[in-house]
Design a protein around this nucleic acid. Structure first.
Lengths: 336, 336
DNA sequence: CTGAAAGCGCTTACAG
DNA sequence: CTGAAAGCGCTTACAG
């Protein structure tokens, strides 16, 4: 059996209450007693039992992170950003994925009860957002992460809409007129926002330009298929994919067909995944600071801890930045 | 305040003991009582308080994962593999990184007390392995992950030694004689094993071949520096970098210098990170199934739960696989 | 099959 | 500044 607070108390000749106070840095402990307790605790390698502590203090020092998936660069960057902040505040992280399965989301959320002080939740599914309230306890501070707006909960979102507008504008500015868009999955919030940005910029910024949309699902394979489809009939001047992964799939389809980027057709993505800078030609994209997304979400949650009664802050939008690489170089006709 | 077992008991007209038994699926509960309890619990959206449960049951249903860092592809793949197994067993994951700081490792480990039923620990630092015992409780089942051997603890390691030998053999087989090696950081277990594999294969497989070692530290920048250094004097036939990241840095240095791969110089890495297949030329490397490394580590831990008294299994080595791409194509002189 | 009670290891008013 | 005691929300022998 491991050593408990009682062992420390006995060894230090004080009550467990005093040990608790000394260890938790309360002021009302005589200096010599504090030193003795600390020394004994150290010698005994005492480490407080977390479950006991959180049962009585009603705090777990743990933040729950509920994500749709644990896959790839996005997850890893997000965790890095969250972890940096958690660490700075001495908080632990309990990770849970519902594996892209919206039905399991509720279960994942409920399982967090009594384990965490607050929740960071990423729920990018457009559908099922209504059911969220069912599983979300009002007593549990929660911040939404890239999951759209909410009336009750603070939310941090990548500014996909503004990014998509800026990218569409960039493609127009570099001389592309007929711009096709490879859309993301229909049930995804970011996919919606990016499509909306593309549509709006086209409508306002390019008189008479018609939206030209090919359905994708954020996977490389769907980008590849879309790329092939776009080569079938009349070709666009440029293709704007709703994420880099699809843009890359599209690029490979173009390569295979001997279509040159950017000479024959411009190409742009969204996210600035590491690969984007390494492919040839380098992919023009919108940079998203995913680590910052995570860090900011946690900071917002800590803000809620400090001021639970404050009205939830307005939805924060994480700005994105255009990264113009070779794939969207100005069309020859314009530079002439 | 959220609903507790007492609320359910009152509502269902039974004792809390019965509620507990019903909810935990014990046999000794009358069928109609069980149904009533379940129904009430559901209606009240009761969810057991985790800290209370684990304090009394002495089980947390949580596995601690202590890693040197939370960065990049390795971490993400590892987590994916661990999560898949955890999930299948209804276990949660408490993540902790000691941020490459060996001294903080002990603190991270101690903080897991009372929070987890077992530990997956990755401690690739060669130094400080002795101090590990200090922070590791004998009562806490622990499995070592890519951290070398241990006399007390089960350990799973990527078979870096065999992989490095196989890669060296492959480079020799493809006609390269003078093979330089870019080593990883001196305090890293895998770096040691890979260097050892390179040395041994060279000694046994290439009569008279002298090891040619350039120090790196697993970063792209160090690979780049090593690549430039190798171009300085007499050049090797091929370069074997201890990981892909350095190999890529080296490749960029060669590109910048106008040195062609593989025509002028062969190149190989280790890990098979996603980028390796996308660069030009495609990088020859050793594939490591990182997700499987994680999954297997957790399975080993569960094995310990089931048979705590069994002698720790022999160290498992996760096999690696040669992926021969363009960067190590046979030298013209040999294919002639 | 069911309940009363002890106990898990802490924290925190309450007294002094 | 310190201690005795209650209590956090569960589980689990122990009786019956």
């Amino acid at each position: 059996m491991s050593v408990t607070i009682k062992d420390v108390a006995r060894e230090a000749n004080v009550s467990v209450a005093t040990v608790s106070r000394a260890l938790n840095g309360h002021e009302n402990v005589a200096e010599d007693v504090r030193k003795r307790v600390l020394e004994v605790a150290d010698r005994l390698r005492y480490s407080p039992h977390h479950a006991a502590r959180s049962l009585s203090s009603r705090r777990t020092q743990t933040i729950g992170v509920v994500l749709p998936d644990l896959y790839g660069e996005f997850f890893s960057e997000l965790m890095r950003g969250i972890d940096a902040v958690a660490r700075a505040h001495g908080l632990h992280l309990l990770i849970s994925s519902y594996h892209g399965n919206p039905e399991e989301q509720g279960a994942a959320l409920r399982a967090m009860r009594g384990r965490v002080d607050g929740l960071l939740l990423m729920s990018p599914f457009v559908a099922g957002r209504e059911d969220l309230g069912e599983s979300l306890s009002p007593a549990m501070p929660t911040v939404l992460l890239n999951s759209g707006r909410s009336d009750e909960l603070p939310a941090i979102n990548v500014d996909s809409y503004a990014g998509a507008r800026a990218m569409t504008r960039h493609l127009l500015d570099t001389g592309h007129r007929r711009i096709a868009f490879i859309a993301g999955p229909d049930d995804n919030f970011d996919a919606h926002e990016r499509l909306r940005g593309y549509r709006d910029e086209l409508a306002e910024g390019a008189a008479g330009a018609r939206p030209w949309i090919v359905q994708g699902d954020f996977t490389e394979a769907s980008g590849h298929a879309a790329g092939r489809a776009l080569l079938g009939g009349e070709r666009p001047d440029a293709v704007f994919a709703a994420n880099d992964t699809m843009a890359l799939g599209c690029l490979f389809a173009f390569n295979q067909a001997g279509v040159r980027v950017p000479a024959d057709i411009g190409l742009a993505g969204f996210d600035d995944i590491p690969l984007s800078r390494y492919v040839h030609p380098g992919l023009t994209t919108m940079r998203v600071d995913i680590a910052e997304l995570g860090g900011r979400a946690l900071r917002t949650l800590l803000e809620r801890f400090a001021h639970p009664a404050a009205p939830p802050p307005a939805d924060a939008r994480l700005p994105v930045a255009l990264v113009a690489r070779e794939s969207s170089r100005s069309r020859p006709i314009d530079t002439a």
